[in-house]
Amino acid sequence: MTRVAEPETAEEVLGQKKTLGRQVHGVLHRMPALSPLIVLVAAGVVFGLANPRFFLPGNLSIILQQASIVGALAVGQTLVILTAGIDLSIGAVMVLSSLVMAKLVKDGAVPGPVALLIGFAVAVLAGALNGFLVTRIKLPPFIVTLGTLSIFTAGTLIYAQGQTISLPANTFLTWTGSTIAIGSFNLTVGVIMMLVLYVVFAYALKQTAWGKHLYATGDDPEASGLAGIRTNRVLLSAYVVAGAVIGIGAWILVGRINGADPNAGVNANLESITAVVIGGTSLFGGRGAVVGSLIGALIVQVFDNGLALAGVDPNYQVLAVGVLVLLAVGADQWIRSVKS
């Protein structure tokens, strides 16, 4: 018998025959933010055609400013969701933190930077509490943060005593609200901070070991533990770092509303989750890109703004966001199900 070349294995033969579905799957897997980006661009084109004012620099900067708070929170929310967790308390922590900052300056005559640090520390501690309960007491993140949501909300209302606090513009704490005009394009310091958060965390998640471990832990905690990752530390760090991000979000909030309002941002908890989910990050953990959450936050604002400019009943924005959430979750389900 003559010897022929080594027989090809079934995988080799099959591997060469890539179906269209497999290719689309591969692309979406590598670039989870691609489909939301397509939605964002398409929405922009449609709203621009419906009302040319949509693309005026002034209008675009309003969209960015409106997205700045939820955009910042969505960074923290992405970290937690990547670990297959969820943080329902994120908006409540932001409001509490912003109230502490503003109240210390207003009532306590504390210098702005010190008030900022204390408010920031409150947010970090709140994140640490969530992380502690999730990793040490081993409670599901949904339940933990549902509980802390109530606690932080109550804490805010008790601390505020029904007051809203207004601060003068152009102080240290309200610096985040000051505008930087580029032509007729008005950026605020808060918007820039929010964008910087995305750059920092896009880097940290993709280029550092911490980011790799966050993805791996969310993907398969047991395997990650066996591979040598200290998964509890990674989980805890996600909540603590999310707390720090929320602290920055609180500062942006103070600048945006020139003070603090215990009833501000009541929807921010769910809006940040919406942004992350529309942005293509999997609620099951381990998949997604933080930039998707920015796109998700922008999509929500673009629909809000564009539909208003087009003279459409604003309730359709709520409807559209709901449809997008379901589409995004469906796409994620498909991405996770197509395997070898």
């Binding site: 993805y215 395997a223 990650s224």
Partner: peptide, 9 residues
Amino acid sequence: QTLAVAPAL
């Protein structure tokens, strides 16, 4: 035995 690999990575 379970291989301990992270599937999405």
